[in-house]
Each structure stands twice: as C-alpha cells, then as structure tokens.
Write a protein that binds this DNA or RNA. Structure first.
Length: 850
DNA sequence: GGTCTTACTTAGCAGTCGAGCA
DNA sequence: TGCTCGACTGCTAAGTAAGACC
C-alpha cells in the first residue's frame, strides 16, 4: 500500500500482527514449540506470494506445451526409475553419506523399502489391466459405459424415431449385496402422476410433476401469475421444511441416505441452432455444417481471452475441430488454424451478448420467469416426503474444456451429453422422469446408499459428473456436521499424534521418518494430502506427491516450498523448521535423488491415511485441514475487542477468517479495479479529514485553549496541493448546486409570474455552538475510523479469498457462538446461502467451543 | 496388495443482480 | 436513468479417499 499515512490511526490486530502484508513478509519459526494448544499462527507464518506472478498457464511460447508434456512424461518415467534406482541404492547411499549422525542410520526392513521396490511398477499393473479381460473396472459400470456409448451413437440416428422401450438392467454382477437396488421400470410413457413416496415424515407434499407443464425440448410454460404462485408455494414449502430439524434427531445408520426419492430428472441444454454466419479461411468465406459451425463458435467466443493464447488449447481445439470437420458432408479446405478467421462469428456472439444486456424490462422479466419455471420443475426433489433443493440439475452444455493451469487437455471438445449417457437414481416407487422425446436414459437405478440423483460421464477426462442436492439440503447438512464433528474428535487425539510424529522424525526406518515429516507439514502448514496424478492432468502436487524441486533448503533451518497446488495455485512459503525436520529433508533430497524424483519416495496418501486410522476411525490427512482451520479461527477470534464498535468487531472476525484463508492458501486474483477503488477510498478519507479540519478551526476559534489538546492537532497528511485541488472541487460543486437551485427557483417564479433571478448568493452559514461543533467533530472522527477500517479490510483481502474457508473449513458453530458472545447479528457474517447451508448450527449456545 | 472406480468435497472464476450514487 | 461496485450465485474443474475389483 502506498499510503501508510492513511492507515495510521488504525489499531493493529491485537495479536500484534499489524497487517497481512506485513505478516507475509515475516518468516516465522516452526521449531521449538510443540504446544498443542497454541494457535497455529503462533507456530506458522506463511509468506504467500501472489500466484499470478507465476502464471497459472505456462508461458505461451510455441514450445512450452510440448516441453510440459515431455516434462510430465519424463518426470513420471524418471520418478519410476528413481524409485527403482533409489530402492537399490538406498541403504548404501544413506550409510555412506557424509552425514553420519546416528539419526540417519535406517534399518532395511521390508516395510522401509521405497514404494517402487515394494510395489511392482504401476505401468505393469496398467498393462495387466489393459491386457484384455482383467480390467478392474466394475462390470456394472463398464456395462453402463458400453450402453452409454451404444446409446449415444444410436441415439443420433434414432433421435427422430418414436420412443423405444426403456433399457432395464438387472444387477447380476457379483457386486456386494444391497449396493444397487434396481427395479424394472414399467414404461416411460406411463403418464400417471408421480407416485407418492411413503413419507418418512408426517408431512405430505404435492407431486412435483404437476407443478409445471412440460413442453417439447424441456421448455416450460405457465402464466406469470401461476409462476408467481409457484414461487410463493416454493417459499412456503421451504419454510415448512425448515421445521425439519434433522440435527435434533438421533443419527443412526448413515449408509441409507433416503427411503423415498422423487425428482424430475435433469435439464438438457437446447439443441444448437445454426446461425448462418460464415467464418473465413485464407480470406475466403467457408460454408460449415451445423456441427462444425457450433464448435467454431465455441472458439470464436473465446477470441480475445487468454485461452486462445495458450498453444495447448489451440492445438487441442484444432485437432478436435478437424475431427468434427472430417465427419462433415460439406468439403472444406481447412488445414491450418492460423489461416482461420473467426471474427465474423466473434462479432456475431458479441452482438448477441449486447442484445442480452440491452433487453427491455419485459424481455428480462420473461427470461427470469422462464428460468424460475425451470427451477421450479427441475430444481426440487422429494426426499422422504420433504421437498429439498437440488444443486445442479442442468446437464453441462457442450464447449471447449477449460482446464486450469497447464492442463494438457485444455481446448478439447466437450461433447453434447445425450440422455443415453445419463443414469438416473430415483426411488423404486417414484415415477421415472421422461427423457426428452425420442431418447431414453442410459439406466435407471434405485440406490439409496448414495446421494446423487443422476450422473453422466464426460468425454474429455472420462470423469463422472453428478447431480446432487444443494448445499442447504439435509443430506449435505448432515455430511457437513459429520465432517466438523470428526475434526472436533481429532482434538482428543492430536496430542498423541503430534508426540508420535515428533518422535518419528528420528526413527530409524526411513518410511516412518518420511511419514512423520509429511505429518509435520500436513499438521503445521495445512498442506493437502497430495494424491498421485495422471499424466493427462495438470502437474500439481500436495504433501505426499512433493518432488525434489518443490522444496529448497536454506541452512541453517529454512525450508522454501514452491509448487503448484490444487487448481494450479502457487504455494510459496518460507518456513523455519525444527533441526530434525531440516536434517530429514536433506536426507530425502540426497543424491542420487534429483529433479523430478519424489521427495517422499516411501509414502503415499494411502499409507499415510492408513496410519492415521490407527489413532481414530475415519481420520485422514484432510481432517487436519478442517481441524486446524477451525481451531485457528476460534483462537484468532479471541482478539475481538469486547467493547469495540460493530465495524471493529467485524474487522476482527474478518482478520481471523483471513488467517485461516492464508493458512489454507486460498488465493484469488487481485480485482482489476482494486487500485482505483483504493484511491477513491483514500480520497474519501482525505475529504473527511478536510471537513474535520474545518470544524477544528471553528472550535479553536471559539476556544483557543484547546490548541494544546492532541485531538485538535493538525491533519498531518493533507498536503497543500491536495487541499487546493479539493477546495476547487468543492467550489465547483457549490456553483453547480447553486445553478440548479437557481434554475428551480426561476421555474417557480416563471409559473407564478414573478421576476426571474440572475444569480443566487450562497447561504450565510451561522457558526454553530461549541457543543454542536464538538458533536460534529466526534461524528466525523467515527466516520473516518470506519472508512479506514474498510480500507484496511479491503486491502488485506485483495489476494485472499475468504469465502472458501468460511464455506468449507470453518465450523459454522464458532461463528454463531461468536455472534452471540459479541452481540453481532449473524447476518453480518453469513450471507443468505450460508444461513441456509448452516441452519443446523444456528442454535449453538454462546459458550460453545470447537 | 495394487489399481481403478466411484462418490463426494473443495475450489476459483465469471456472470448476474441489486443497492447506492450522480 | 445509467453507471459503478460489491455481494452473491452458478458453473464446473480439481481435489480426497473409500472400497470394489482383479
């Protein structure tokens, strides 16, 4: 921040951390303090560097892609080779090392061998799997996939034919008993009302189906009045549902997620309508068939963004587009992306966007009503007789895959999902939703051990996409409560775990030493577990998958972490660690290890989590993040000023939240307008100070003795130039005001036939009484203070995303407790969605502890 | 016991909405 | 009325981890 003077009146947070930026510069010690009860801050200070400084997407020079892909490929080969090599050289290297301190002599027990030595290479496993009939893919799933594939292809030909019989599959596989309970679906054309669930609760709800009428292509009809009534009804139902307090009920067997389930299926994006705009190739207009035109349109809409600067994106798009073009009936000359001119399409879509923006009020209302009607039809499900909100009922539309960071598949064509690829999960007694005309579902299952309502497989990463209930639903709420209770449970075990990993840092088994070191980082730096990743994913890591090059050692005991974590967000942190941790890292990095080799070659997330299960059922590396986030938050909230104003309390809350966000490395890009906005805020403060200066002058005129009092000291940061400029501005403003007043006055005079005025004199202001001036002085002081707090908050937040930790890691009961304790309305810290999501936490008493 | 699948949570960003202001 | 800006929402990518499968 360029204006420390503007901030000077603001008290630092009471833990002595003046500001995050200052804090980020600090490098703190991790060593010498193993107290369990200390807030994490006391032990960890991270120096988080703006991730954007290291581009998420690798430099767009022509070869970077190929280089990346080669690197990944060679990295992984190297890793495997290194693991093999290390396994053979291991003990020798360690024992012959110069660091012959007793803590470095490891036993060569079987459990202490590198993973590569214990496990036959992964590729061998893969080969085995792909070598014919021994694939480990579940038979049921494979069947579904085959069916989906058949269905999709067939559906294209069939799309106009009449509805065929639904595909019903009986689960004959050797899957363990009640996992998938499938029943025969009688007939899709059965138009009877949605079958009533056997209500688990006493309330009964109207069938979902009848609320909105179907129209072809999934569009919905209904008068605005009807829709409004529908909305009101939904609100009433919602209110009614709020009375269902699942958290007050005994939670028994949680493997059964529901008893009855009804819903209206999923909503498909409308089919592509050709736009008839021709792109150019080598200067000539090209006539594309609809499919090719649609894909060209996806790309055209991204022209001008960073995506099309990314060579991987361009390459992947072009390959997939050529494949689409190859199927086209129309011939085309397209051979090079460089010769393609998408600008006619880009302009067309820009026009469409503008048109959307400038819709009339009526058009906007119609569009809103349509959206509402869709929400009403597809956005709700009946679960055990209760109406609850569905999170995402829309099938993802086709487009170009926008993988984050240097994702090797960025730009690949995400194909249109057909009903034949979609598996529906619904109650056995419920009416199966109708698939769009001429289509059928891949499969209909009645699996009440899962919470998804539908899923499909996308073509780019072969990943499953699920339709789940919304965040505020009872199922998600129960899962949240369970998560936080598990984290609270960890409290009982954390001392032992810490003692154990502390002792394990010196263990003679290399595997134990690596596990202990990893635990040290997971616990203290809140690193993610770090699962293995495939070659066709972005090269990101977590704790267990850290590589040689991600950790730099700076003697005597500083460790510099620099790697790309989830979402390719850079994690940069300089920390001073205990001597033994430093020593261990030195050993883990010892030759023959080199760049590309795993730091922890005897550890993976499975081993780590298995170890954690010994302490507590269900304990995994992830739980530490939740535990430490919530624990840190609660500790930091102790810095709330008891007698502070509301803004001061909220600043303390946000600061605590920010500590957690920094701990978890939740970053965001600096908003484009941040600099401008800060400048505007600064000016506002200056203007207030100027006003205060004027009041002060009046006070001192009335009572010159006060000059000696500090609160009447001169404003030190209002320079003459600024004052001059500001006074000019005020003068102009006053002139304008008078001109307007004159105009108004003359209008009135004209109407009443009075003589018109040529000018108005500024009103003569009486000097207020001393009491009144003092009052004004006090008020303006408060405004300045509040404005400054807002500035500090804003600036400290520019690269830190507070939302993620608030939504996912911080036990909401801490916030509820804090609000009660400090008499702060909960609405000040939780928005509407959070109030809904965390309604289970609302009755937390003011003396509750995490 | 290793690999792979499945089900779920966690994550950042872009678009939308609405309040406040000129 | 139009503009700005922050808050919120929806979207979908990217993680974790249990357990199915061979």
């Amino acid at each position: 921040m360029s204006a420390p003077t503007e901030m000077e009146g603001v008290a630092p947070s009471t833990n002595g951390v003046a500001s995050i930026s200052a804090k980020r510069k600090a490098v703190d010690h991790l060593d010498g303090d193993s107290s369990d009860d200390l807030p994490l801050q006391a032990r960890v200070r991270t120096k988080t560097v703006d991730a954007k400084k290291k581009p998420k997407v690798e430099p767009s020079d022509g070869d970077s892609d190929a280089v990346n892909s080669r690197r990944r490929s060679t990295d992984s080969k190297r890793r495997a080779a290194a693991k093999r090599k290390l396994s053979s050289e291991d003990s020798g290297a360690e024992n012959s090392s110069e660091d012959t301190d007793e803590s470095e002599n490891f036993s060569e027990s079987d459990s202490d061998a590198p993973l590569a030595k214990r496990a036959k290479s992964k590729s061998a496993g893969k080969k085995r799997a792909s070598n014919g009939n021994v694939s480990s893919k579940s038979t049921a799933k494979r069947k579904r996939e085959e069916m989906a594939k058949d269905g999709t292809d067939a559906s294209l030909e069939r799309s106009n034919s009449s509805k065929s019989e639904p595909k019903i599959k009986e689960e004959k596989e050797s899957k363990p008993a009640p996992k998938l309970k499938k029943v025969k679906v009688e007939s899709e054309s059965d138009d009877s009302a949605v079958s009533r669930p056997k209500p688990a609760s006493k309330k009964s709800k109207p069938p979902l189906k009848k609320e909105v009428k179907d129209e072809p292509n999934g569009s919905v009809s209904g008068t605005p009045q009807k829709k409004a009534r529908g909305k009101k009804k939904a609100e009433e139902d919602e209110e009614e549902d709020e009375q269902y307090k699942w958290w007050l009920q005994q939670q028994g067997d949680t493997s059964e997620k529901w008893k009855s389930l009804e819903h209206n299926g999923v909503f498909f994006p409308p089919p592509y309508k050709p736009i008839g705009v021709k792109m150019k190739y080598d200067g000539r207009e090209i006539d594309l068939d609809p499919e090719a035109e649609e894909v060209a349109g996806f790309y055209a809409q991204l022209v001008g963004t960073e995506w099309v600067e990314n060579p991987t994106f361009r390459k992947n798009f072009f390959e997939d587009w050529l494949a689409v073009l190859a199927k086209s009936k129309k011939s085309h000359p397209i051979k090079s992306l460089e010769k393609c001119d998408f600008s006619p399409l880009t302009e067309y879509y820009a026009k469409i966007r503008d048109e959307r923006k400038s819709m009339t009020k009526e058009q906007k209302e119609a569009s809103k009503a349509e959206k509402l009607a869709l929400d009403e039809k597809y956005g709700w499900a009946l679960i055990d007789g209760r109406k609850e909100k569905i999170g995402n009922f829309r099938i993802e539309p086709p487009g170009l895959f926008r993988g984050r960071g240097a994702h090797p598949k960025a730009g690949r064509l995400k194909k249109r999902v057909m009903p034949e690829q979609v598996v529906i999960n619904i109650g056995a007694d419920a009416k199966v939703p109708d698939p769009p005309g001429g289509h059928q579902w891949c499969e209909v299952v009645h699996d009440n051990t899962v919470t998804w309502l539908a899923y499909w497989k996308e073509n780019v990463n072969d990943a499953f996409k699920y339709v789940f209930f919304a965040a505020g639903s009872s199922l998600k709420g129960q899962s949240d409560l369970k998560k936080f209770e598990k984290a609270r449970d960890l409290k009982k075990h954390v001392r032992k775990i810490r003692n154990d990993y502390q002792a394990g840092l010196k263990d003679e088994l290399m595997a134990t030493r690596q596990r202990s070191t990893a635990m040290y980082f997971i616990d203290r730096l809140a690193l993610r577990a770090g699962n293995e990743k495939g070659e066709d994913e972005a090269d990101t890591v977590g704790c267990c998958s850290l590589r040689y090059e991600h950790v730099t050692l700076a003697p005597p005991n500083k460790v510099i972490f620099d790697f790309l974590g989830k979402d390719s967000i850079r994690y940069y942190n300089e920390v001073e660690v205990e001597d033994q941790v430093f020593k261990n890292l030195k050993i883990f990095k010892k030759p023959p290890k080199k760049e590309g080799d795993p730091l922890f070659d005897r550890l993976d997330t499975t081993i780590l989590n298995k170890h954690l299960q010994n302490y507590m059922k269900g304990l995994t590396a992830k739980v530490f993040r939740t535990y430490n986030a919530s624990h840190t938050f609660q500790e930091q909230l102790q810095n709330t000023p008891k007698d502070g104003s509301l803004p001061e309390k909220l600043l303390a809350y946000n600061r605590a939240n920010r500590e957690v966000a920094i701990l978890c490395n939740h970053q965001r890009s600096v908003p484009k307008a941040h600099g401008n906005q800060m400048e505007k805020l600064k000016n506002k403060v200056r203007a207030l100070k100027y006003e205060r200066r004027k009041i002060r002058e009046q006070i001192l005129e009335l009572d010159p003795k006060r000059k000696r009092k500090t609160e009447y000291a001169e404003e030190s940061d209002l320079d003459e130039d600024w004052i001059e400029q500001h006074e000019k501005f005020l003068e102009e403003q006053e002139k304008e005001r008078l001109a307007k007043k004159l105009e108004k006055e003359n209008e009135r005079r004209k109407e009443e036939g009075e003589e018109l005025l040529t000018h108005l004199d500024p009103p003569v202001k009486k000097t207020p009484s001393l009491d009144r001036l003092e009052d004004q002085f006090e008020k303006i002081n408060e405004r300045i203070k509040a404005q400054k707090l807002a500035m500090v908050d804003k600036d400290e937040n520019k690269t830190t995303a507070l939302g993620t930790s608030k939504i996912n890691y911080i036990d909401p009961r801490i916030s509820v407790m804090w609000c009660k304790k400090y008499d702060v309305p909960l609405e000040k810290v939780f928005n509407k969605s959070l109030l809904t999501k965390f309604k289970w936490a609302m009755e937390t008493p003011g003396d509750w502890e995490f």
